[in-house]
Design a binder for these strands. Structure first.
Length: 482
DNA sequence: TTTTGAGTTGTTCGA
DNA sequence: GTCGAACAACTCAAA
């Protein structure tokens, strides 16, 4: 008698290497059915934005190709994941569902539904870790509480047992012989058509496990050494650019962790270079743990005092921010990079976010929603925790008086104007001394640079100095007892 | 329980 | 132009 198959339910772990769920599924010695479910129906699942759908398409295509080498067809189904899994178990008589745990609140709800439905059909359900380095229920303070401050959190992680070493690629996977119906990937229409805004994404990124590994190797050999310093300059490629690959699980954080450690173990200053990068991985971790313990993080301020903050409605200003037409070159460069490539340099994310929240006093949730829709790496946890941090209402938030000055930040982190010239070409002819403050350029300079302020490039949407005072007043009022 | 030290990413002001 | 101090008080984490 034939053995009943098991289902490997791929989610945000679109890789074959270091995939504990997959490895365990294979280890059962049973035929493996590989499944991906496009779930736009489960509450909260609609959070996947347009840019991510574009990425998902490439990532699924790559995974399907990789699986085909094992004679495995990736089954594609659309609908509520628990329903889809229920019917697939029924169709195939599957024995167990294997999957990696996703810590987003809606995903956890879905996981328990899947587990219930599997039970109904007398199948098991087993989940594995892999999306995170540490178990959120194990990184706790001495009092047994989750951390609310990053630095002690990171110390605790470094003091914890090292994340398990990554698993290798499977050597073989036993296919399931029965034919199973699958959607055509094209029918999901994950890529934009009219209008097709994804041209910039196409030329910037290549989704898939192989490319993720490639990115990591390039980072280790070419950029890790200078990372601590170079990561702050948007005009040079100093970061790993692994975020979207990590988000979709094309590479695991444990693979990054161990690869970085391994690459630096024989270098004199290795630990320094490595730790800086590991700290960034731990920021991702910190945000995920926060969301795990505070599922309401996407909706409401972490600090309740901000519940009554007087956010302003200003659709015109918001639109200009989205379009990269605020009149502050570094902000506009960032917003245009985002729109074109689905990604924005970390430093510029802070500057652009600070501008929306502090200079325009627009609700951080509006900014977070825009990022969620346009970033290829949009991660619910990192996104909302980051926005709350900038807004001052989050965990371990910046002091309220810390308001980024877009001109100074530009001059400090883009001193040659490389970044601004690339993304805001209409300012390209301004000298370095004026590129971050075109409004202060003399008439002659503007004329010879072919700039007409208010026409070819906007005047500043707000005056930063007065906007700063306005924000300080609003923040001060929030802090005072009602 | 109380106390103490510390807290990703900054800006402005005045000497 | 450069430098250090002030910004304001609070919460967190650990001793």
């Amino acid at each position: 008698m034939k053995k009943a198959p098991v289902i490997m339910w791929f989610r945000r772990d679109l890789r074959l290497s270091d995939n504990r769920a997959l490895t365990a599924a294979i280890a059962t010695g049973r035929p493996v059915i590989a499944l991906y479910v496009l779930d736009d129906v489960s509450p909260g699942a609609h959070a996947m934005g347009g840019a991510q759908r574009w990425w998902l398409e490439g990532s699924i295509r790559a995974l399907a190709t990789d699986l085909r080498r094992f004679n495995i067809e990736l089954i594609l189904r659309k609908g509520r994941a628990d329903h889809v899994l229920g019917s697939l178990i029924e169709e195939t008589g599957a024995h167990t569902v294997f999957h990696s745990r996703d810590y987003a609140p809606w995903a956890r709800t879905l996981e328990s539904k899947v587990s219930q439905i599997a039970e109904k059909f007398e199948a098991g359900c087993r989940w594995f870790t892999g999306q995170l380095l540490f178990n959120p229920n194990e990184i706790k303070t001495a009092m047994g509480q989750p951390y609310k401050v990053y630095t002690p959190f990171s110390r605790s992680c470094f003091a914890s047992p090292t994340p398990p070493a990554p698993l290798h690629n499977p050597s073989q996977i036993q296919p399931f012989s029965q034919l199973i119906a699958s959607d055509e990937l094209d029918s999901w229409k994950l890529r934009p058509e009219c209008p097709d805004w994804a041209g910039g994404l196409e030329t910037t990124w290549q989704p898939g496990e192989a490319m993720a590994r490639n990115k990591l190797d390039i980072f280790l050999s070419q950029r890790l050494e200078a990372y601590a310093h170079a990561r702050d300059y948007p005009g040079i490629v100093g970061t790993s650019q692994l975020s979207p690959h990590l988000h979709f699980g094309e590479i695991s954080p444990a693979q990054c962790w161990h690869a970085v450690r391994h690459a630096t173990e024989n270098q004199s200053n290795g630990d320094l270079a490595a730790d800086k990068f590991l700290m960034e991985l731990l920021w991702r971790e910190f945000c995920a743990h926060l969301l795990h313990h505070w599922p309401d993080l996407p909706n409401n301020p972490f600090k309740p005092a901000f519940n009554n903050f007087p956010w302003r409605e200003n659709p015109q200003a918001f639109e200009r921010w989205c379009q990269g037409r605020t009149g502050y070159p570094i902000v506009d460069a960032g917003m245009r990079e985002l729109w074109h490539t689905g990604w924005m340099h970390n430093r510029v994310r802070m500057i652009a976010a600070s501008f929306l929240v502090k200079d325009l006093l627009i609700d951080w949730r509006k900014g977070a929603a825009w990022f969620q829709d346009t970033l290829v790496d949009a991660d619910l946890a990192s996104n909302v925790a980051g926005w709350q941090w900038v807004a001052g209402c989050g965990a371990d938030a910046a002091p309220f008086f810390r308001i980024f000055n877009p001109q100074l930040q530009g001059e400090k982190f883009d001193p040659e104007g490389t970044y601004v010239r690339h993304w805001v070409p209409e300012l390209a002819n301004l000298p370095n001394t004026l590129i971050h403050r075109p409004w202060a350029a003399p008439v002659d300079t503007l004329r010879s640079a072919k700039i007409i302020l208010g026409e070819t490039y906007p005047l500043p949407l707000v005056d930063h100095q007065s906007a700063r005072r306005r924000a300080l007043d609003a923040l001060k009022a929030t802090r005072e007892p009602q």
